[in-house]
């Protein structure tokens, strides 16, 4: 089957199962734990969820909404930060100006 997005089968950028463009790329066996930036973003995400300010589903939706060029340019936890900060603004928890 084709795994390329089409108008009839608009596959999301995050919906990566089987994507042909990675067929010939070995999995890079990086075992390092997240750096301080990543751990901090991770911890804040958990706190926001625990306080009922956002769900993990909103985190994912926020990540999936990142425009394609940016999605692939950002690191894993940069995508998380983009998502959670956008969602906190979207929900009126913090004003956008304070992030500029």
């Amino acid at each position: 089957m084709s795994d390329a997005p089409t108008d009839a089968r608009p596959i999301g950028i995050h919906d990566l199962g089987g994507a042909s463009r990675y067929r010939c790329s070995p999995v890079e066996r990086d075992e390092a734990p997240p750096d301080e930036f990543g751990k901090r973003v991770d911890a804040i995400r958990q706190i926001l969820a625990q306080k009922g300010l956002m769900t993990v589903d909103e985190l994912r939706r926020g990540i999936e909404s990142i425009p394609e060029a940016e999605y692939f340019a950002l690191t894993y936890y940069e995508r998380w930060l983009t998502s959670i900060s956008t969602i906190m603004v979207e929900k009126g928890v913090i004003p956008a100006e304070e992030l500029r």
Partner: peptide
């Protein structure tokens, strides 16, 4: 089904199983 055609959505059914 491809809700992706209909606007913003968040789907947990991978494309390859539809």
């Amino acid at each position: 089904d491809w809700p992706e055609r209909r606007g913003p959505c968040h789907i947990r059914t991978p494309h390859y199983l539809r």
